[in-house]
Amino acid sequence: MSTPVQSSAPILSSSLTVVGSINLDVTATAGRLPSPGETVGGGVLRQQPGGKGANQAVAAARLAGSSRMVGAVGQDDAGLNLITAMSGAGVDVQDIAKVDAATGTALVLVDGEGENQIVVCPGANGLVALDGVTFRDDEALLCQLEVDQDVVLEAARRAKGFFALNAAPAAPIIPELLERCDLVIVNETEYELIPALRNAPLVAVTYGGDGSAIFVDGERVAEAPAVRVTDIANTIGAGDAFCAALVLALQSGLEYGHALAVANAVGADAVRDASSQPALKPLEDYVEATRLPDATSSAATK
């Protein structure tokens, strides 16, 4: 396991590679979400790039200038378009396989407040493999649980640098995988659903409007308040942007509280954007914007 160096000043960050899902998001936005068996009219339909893995890779590229994506798409127009979109955002797409399956698709319903309901059809994401993929010593690696957990475990075994897991969607984690994590990132619901995280060495938990916190061996050691947002457009990509930002911030040497504040600020910008892969400023801008004394809180909470 590799531990990020805690520092009050950022250092040059290592590169970030994401292993995970790539989806086409088919989104219907309406005034409210339907109840079971109910039809809600007046929706607006759009298609856009998505998938937790791709969202995190694009966010990392926009924050740090580049990133690498390891995943799979189908040999269809959707797959080609998704690869083109990622490449255009600065993601190295050489390790995205084109497999004999439909490109993964997410069916998303979003209400007027930005809340959402999602059904994911994995498709090609079920065929992600690490054949021929290598990882460097200076690479941070970020995974999620939208691809087969055995693939994630293999990535963790191969990782030579910092290994982070966004344990979403919530599922029981293979014990060896958890042991190999330098960082686990979850929201408060996932934290409750995965009891094994209580004793994990380093866990970041997001609490929506109540900010975020870091736990070391089950003890809450750092926290940062949420950034208030009134113009919410879409909450889907916010958690993914937070994950990419937090890993980059920690790998840049920021102390826990400051890194959380940076990630919170990135997530706040993400919800203002209707895209699941929102436009973001360079990481350095968020680092400077959150450097004020009242912008972070890294005091331990007993």
Rank of each mutant, 00 (worst) to 15 (best):
E179M: 13
D240S: 15
A224Q: 06
N234P: 12
A155M: 02
A168G: 13
C243W: 05
E188A: 09
P195F: 09
V205W: 02
G239Y: 12
A238V: 07
I194R: 12
R220Y: 05
L250S: 10
A156D: 08
G239V: 03
D210M: 07
A200G: 09
V186R: 00
V186T: 03
K160E: 10
G257K: 12
E154T: 00
R158D: 04
H258W: 13
A167R: 13
A164S: 15
A155S: 07
A168Q: 13
P175G: 13
R198H: 06
E219K: 06
I194T: 15
P175E: 11
L254R: 11
I185D: 01
A249N: 07
G257I: 04
L202F: 03
N187R: 02
V262E: 07
P172D: 11
L193C: 14
Q251H: 10
E188K: 08
N199P: 04
G209N: 02
L165E: 12
E176W: 08
P175F: 12
P195E: 12
L177V: 05
I236T: 12
R180S: 10
L260A: 13
A241C: 14
A245R: 08
Y256C: 11
S252A: 15
V229Q: 11
A159N: 13
G161E: 06
A259Q: 12
C181R: 05
D182K: 03
P195R: 15
V216H: 00
L153A: 04
A222M: 07
Y207L: 08
Y207R: 12
Y207H: 06
N166Y: 11
D217A: 05
G161A: 13
N199E: 05
E188Q: 06
A159L: 09
D231S: 14
G208W: 00
A244L: 05
